[in-house]
């Protein structure tokens, strides 16, 4: 049972990190367009355009 003292907090911590990841993704707008994101991965960007200098 001693191992529980270590393992339980570790498991909880990993879960908590995942929760933080989810909250970050939500806040940065990644859940705004689920249909678009699902399709976007299938297409390549055009490589030609140069980034304009700021």
């Amino acid at each position: 049972m001693d191992s529980l003292i270590l393992l339980m907090p570790v498991a909880m911590l990993m879960g908590f990190i995942a929760l933080c990841g989810f909250l970050w993704a939500l806040r940065s707008g990644q859940y705004e367009d689920l249909d678009g994101a699902a399709n976007r991965i299938l297409f390549d960007d055009l490589p030609t355009k140069k980034e304009p200098k700021p």
Binding site: E32, G36, N39, T48, P52
Partner: peptide
């Protein structure tokens, strides 16, 4: 999805466009 891609790429190909993001 292809429409989103076409629209974004076509507009972004203009040299002065800095952002073109379509939400499906």
């Amino acid at each position: 999805g292809a429409c989103v891609w076409l629209l974004e790429q076509a507009v972004a190909a203009e040299p002065d466009v800095v952002q073109a993001r379509a939400n499906l």
